[in-house]
């Protein structure tokens, strides 16, 4: 399937030029309204306070100004030396790993159940996993906070039988719960689509040769659905990494996730340069994850085109 599609993409000279021109409008839009500000922001974090950055520079506190032509890493050094920042990076990475792991397990469970058992119930479960896609994140965060808080559902249910359940509002755990809730749909869609496309014949053959359910899954289904699973993983991780709304509503004052830190450094501490250092940190971490995505895609493209 994939091979024929790639081969069928036309690549003649004039058509290639036409294709390039057609692809330009959205790229220009992004380059002007997102790319340029990003470049300027990174420049500001390196101490370049002139040009459009002079607006911010005129009210910022604790600013590091470039002394050499390319800039200075002083703002980065300052942040890395802050214990609080290091803790927040660690928590952000931890929440990202935990949420991604839980999301992946749930998505795999839902998808395998749909593939191997099938039926109306399995379909209903999969549909259930997609519902959060359609709920705005602000509402989701708020709903989750009230559900797990001191006077929320969980504690109410336990109180019915005289037990005292822990209040989960404003904890790191709440951020993980919220992140899992909001990221689940995309992962379910990716993973189940990947696993659905494994042909019946392959599964039957593996089973006929005596492989159990676990082995069939591990050595046949998962390798064949490798790419969608990697995509689900990387997109979930990148989404959680830079999230703001969920941790802002449901998380504790300390430790905090980096997305919330940006807001604080901007507004509450009046240190926009340091805020951008945090933004760049998120971007670098996300790029690290994105490499996994690109690697997986190229690996599969190469192995299939050869």
């Amino acid at each position: 399937m994939r091979r024929t599609r790639v081969a069928a993409r036309s690549s003649g000279q004039p058509r290639a030029v036409l294709g390039f021109v057609m692809a330009l409008p959205p790229l220009l839009l992004i380059a002007v309204f997102a790319g340029l500000p990003i470049v300027l922001a990174v420049g500001y974090s390196l101490g370049h306070t002139g040009g459009l950055n002079s607006v911010t520079a005129s009210y910022a506190q604790h600013q590091h100004v470039a002394t050499s032509g390319w800039g200075t890493f002083a703002a980065y050094r300052e942040m890395l030396a802050t214990g609080r920042f290091r803790t927040d990076v660690a928590v952000t990475v931890l929440v990202t790993l935990l949420s991604t792991a839980v999301v992946l397990v749930l998505a795999l469970g839902i998808a395998l159940n749909l593939r191997l058992r099938g039926g109306r119930v399995a379909g209903a479960i999969a549909a259930l996993g997609v519902i959060p896609l359609f709920i705005p994140v602000v509402i989701a965060s708020w709903a989750i906070l009230t559900f797990y808080s001191t006077d929320g559902f969980i504690r109410s249910v336990f109180a019915q039988v005289g037990l005292d359940a822990p209040a989960l509002g404003f904890k790191v755990v709440t951020i993980v719960i919220g992140s899992v809730w909001t990221s689940l749909p995309f992962a379910v869609l990716m993973v189940s689509s990947g696993i659905q496309s494994v042909p019946d014949a392959v599964i039957d053959a593996a089973r006929d040769s005596g492989a159990g359910l676990l082995r069939t899954t591990r050595s046949v289904i998962l390798p064949m659905a490798f790419i969608p699973i990697v995509i689900a993983t990387t997109f979930t991780a990148i989404g959680v990494l830079g999230s703001f709304t969920v941790p802002y509503f449901t998380g504790p004052n300390s430790p905090r996730m980096l997305g919330v830190d940006i807001q604080n450094y901007f507004a509450a501490y009046n240190q926009p340069q340091q805020a951008i250092v945090i933004a760049v940190t998120i971007f670098v971490l996300a790029s690290g994850i994105a490499v996994l995505y690109i690697w997986a895609n190229f690996r599969s493209a190469n192995s299939k085109d050869l």
Binding site: P37, N53, G259, A275, I282, A286, A290
Partner: peptide, 18 residues
């Protein structure tokens, strides 16, 4: 995709000026 991964909050001032 990459430009989307940069937290937008860092860009407000430049965006406002533009």
């Amino acid at each position: 995709f990459a430009t989307n991964a940069f937290p937008k909050m860092g860009l407000f001032v430049t965006m406002a000026s533009m």
